[in-house]
Design a protein around this nucleic acid. Structure first.
Lengths: 337, 337
DNA sequence: AGCAGTCTGGAGAGCGCTCTCCGATATGCT
DNA sequence: AGCATATCGGAGAGCGCTCTCCAGACTGCT
């Protein structure tokens, strides 16, 4: 930087001002400085910059609760198996990149890892954290809030916490599914729920039952799944065994719907003629299904982008009031219902 | 840090030595310092540390060539749709985390983005880069090498470049598939290749044809796919139309095999009885197939870990000789063949 | 006991930047 | 012309750490 200043015949301060576009600098001098920068091939040092600005220009993208507690898991990869996380990452990057902010990938499936995340932020390696929890009882949000560290959440925290988050209107989505199944003429409707310790799963189930009740169907059989392909297949098997006359199913996510479809095929049930199937998420699994899955789409990318925006705002002014933004899902009609 | 030093009655230098475990420090003093650290709740500032060590403790995990060149793509998410990338990320994190190194997620699908990656490293925001290219003509590796920036590659670069990489023995994998199909008694074997501008696709095709020739099958029909589900389905359609007697197929990746399986089902061909199918990658798609896919597994996580190791070595001693590590794939027999 | 050699803690100089002051120059007003 | 006011560049003090150098204490040898 000294070199640039010398080459341009100005002081370091002026070079700094040109680079950061702060205050007015004579356009002629600005041009001289730029040329000097180009000539010397100067690139500012991020560490030095961070040291004084107390900003790193990066945020932690934390996937929490990814593995089994206490289990040795050298390769925390199953997170990515669900394309959902990829969409989140895409949305976050889409928003942050134009601002020159970069996400650091962090996994926090054990208590030790969670402590590391807190340290990571404490040490100023990132300015804040975007949390994507895969299960309900994640202690990390509270740790972060208690530590006064800027953080935001994908999905509403199970216990009330002064933290900003985005979420989807699960109940509205479930209602969309209910309306569609009933409009199709389904009379024996059942549902495959997600793990009921997850808030989203609860909301989807409750929303579905409420909507169905409103439509004159007070009793909706339900089998609990685990948001996985296999659990969906197993749930459908049970549904078929216990309620052979089922002609419409709402699955709390696409992956389970895909599994359910496989079970239906094995039992010779045609979809959608014999049994109609509606999923949730509009993940890539929905397109991989045969027939392609009718599903509830939430704007994950937009939600993730909004989440990134909330975090940046929080970093900018830490004593800011927390907010939540709820997105409305939409029904995507394909062939399965 | 000053506070810690005062609290422990030592100098800053000693505190630093205790924290970094460098040189011998009197165990008694060490203990005092540790207690002082705990008492003051001190956390070292990463920026200050980086400023002098010229190390950030983070590496860039770059997904290159993720989107369509020149196309506006605010959400670069389709990368994650392929679970392969998730396994890479898992492997990298698995190796780096115990060393306190963290990966920063970077996308480089446009020239502008590629320049940003180079700048990112130049500015010292990361110590090096792990590149995962999705297509052959990626100019980024060369940019990095020319810039003298530490970088390593997943998969062999199309043009020779002084850069370390890991790869899988594609030909060996293809041979495994050929042996298996022939051993099953297939007589009319065809293959669905990947996009032939990708080296891996070329190798898998050539390896398969060579192995089949060695087994007495000199002519192997091939349809080129694009490593996607749909392209696999379309390729199988064409294969079925042009070679109705086909009874064994080697697909250059699992996703295409999954698509091919759907086409076969639609045509009423039983798998594996009428047509046997072997995929490549052992991705999660292989398990989602019905029947589950026999496929060639490469140890992606191990490869990614090794790649991370190579990068760290390179960062440690920049003038180090470049190396390549080739991993042997294995055959995973499931039900499709 | 005396000396070279080894070990350990402290002092202090930066690392490369930003940003607050300050002073110098240009501008607008009476 | 003379003053107050706005504008813009420079000087220099840190930001929080690491690490080299140095001095003092201690060891083992003759």
């Amino acid at each position: 930087m000294e070199d640039v200043a010398r080459a341009a015949g100005v002081s370091r301060a002026t070079v700094s001002r040109v680079i950061n576009g702060v205050r007015n600098v004579n356009p002629a001098i600005q041009e001289t400085v730029r040329q000097a920068i180009a000539a010397t091939g100067y690139v500012p040092n991020q560490a030095a910059r961070s040291l004084v600005t107390r900003r790193t220009g990066s945020v932690a993208l934390v996937v929490s609760g990814a593995g089994v507690e206490g289990e040795e898991n050298p390769f925390p990869n199953q997170v990515f198996a669900d394309p959902f996380f990829g969409r989140v990452a895409g949305g976050v990057v889409g928003y942050l990149r134009p601002l020159g902010v970069h996400p650091v990938l962090l996994f926090a499936e054990t208590d030790a890892a969670r402590a590391e995340v807190v340290d990571y932020l404490r040490q100023g390696k990132a300015d804040g954290a975007i949390l994507v929890s895969t299960h309900g009882e994640d202690p990390l949000p509270k740790l972060l809030v208690d530590g006064g560290l800027p953080a935001v959440l994908f999905a509403r925290p199970p216990e009330p916490l002064p933290i900003s988050y985005v979420d989807v209107a699960h109940r509205t989505g479930a209602k969309l599914a209910a309306d569609h199944l009933v409009a199709r003429g389904c009379h024996h409707v059942a549902t495959i729920s997600g793990p009921l310790d997850v808030l989203a799963a609860q909301d989807r189930l409750a929303g579905f039952r409420d909507a169905m009740a409103m439509l004159g169907h007070p009793y909706i059989p339900c089998v609990e799944g685990a948001f996985t392909l296999d659990s969906g297949e197993a749930a459908m098997e049970r549904l078929l065994a216990e309620h052979p006359d089922v002609d419409g199913v709402f699955s709390a996510n696409d992956l389970m719907a895909q599994g359910a479809l496989q079970a239906l095929r094995r039992h010779g049930r045609r979809v959608p003629d014999d049994v109609a199937m509606v999923g949730f998420d509009d993940s890539s699994a929905a397109l991989a299904c045969r027939p392609p899955l009718t599903t509830i789409r939430h704007p994950v990318e937009d939600m993730a982008a909004e989440l990134a925006r909330l975090l940046l705002a929080q970093i900018e002014q830490p004593d800011r009031r927390v907010t939540s933004v709820i997105f409305e899902p939409t029904l995507v009609v394909r062939e399965s219902a």
